[in-house]
Design a protein around this nucleic acid. Sequence first.
DNA 1: ATCGTAGTTTGACATCCATCGTAGTACGAG
DNA 2: CTCGTACTACGATGGATGTCAAACTACGAT
Lengths: 119, 119
Amino acid sequence: MVTDTATAGRALPHPEREQIRLESVLHALSDPMRLQIVRELAVREAELTCSQFDLPVTKSTSTHHFRVLRESGVIRQVYRGTAKMNGLRRDDLDGLFPGLLDSLLAAADRQSGRLRAGG
Amino acid sequence: MVTDTATAGRALPHPEREQIRLESVLHALSDPMRLQIVRELAVREAELTCSQFDLPVTKSTSTHHFRVLRESGVIRQVYRGTAKMNGLRRDDLDGLFPGLLDSLLAAADRQSGRLRAGG
DNA sequence: ATCGTAGTTTGACATCCATCGTAGTACGAG
DNA sequence: CTCGTACTACGATGGATGTCAAACTACGAT
């Protein structure tokens, strides 16, 4: 039943670093749900399972968003047992677009604070 | 008689600086056509008319893209006679999200060079 | 073997989006 | 007033997107 990649679990397609397209990254981050996921991944600085995020959508929709993030090269997903660990591809993004991720995260933080303060 | 600033015939709705949303900016820039427009505006550092861009789409589509950029707060559009001048809202964007625009432009430049080199 | 947990897949649906063509509007020059 | 230029508005269309519900798969624990 289990394939020969048993310990690694199922294989998930990721773009190579060189294949990551800026437009796809921006598109991935232009969704509030996905931006929230990325912000949380960045602040925790750890790999998180999908279910550790408290997203106001169903599981199917979560799956969809995580896949968009993975296929655009923003996160890396790895199976560990029944869980699926999600990690930010910080090295790849920083290598490709130095400073971009930090600017984006800072911008998101700023806006978040601004919205919280100004209503 | 050509007046300096106020032709003021048609007024175009722009979001105030505080109304600009990061997600909308990212969405606006996630389209290749619009990213190209913004890059050109940035490198020229001047206001350009719509027709000064050499976009591989029809005029209707151009109008659409410029409107998305304006409504997201990335560019400012002003009528001058029959022409429509387009300018990057650098001050507003830098004020809201310091460093973001430059990081994005640098990322776009990098990718452009990478794609040109690696075919 | 059975079960529960975690996530996937499929199908459906409403919406949005990029694009086009054609017809229309605004403005300056003659 | 008429004409050309520059851009807009409208309608259409094919494709992507976000969302859900329901059925399904994979894995660890009991």
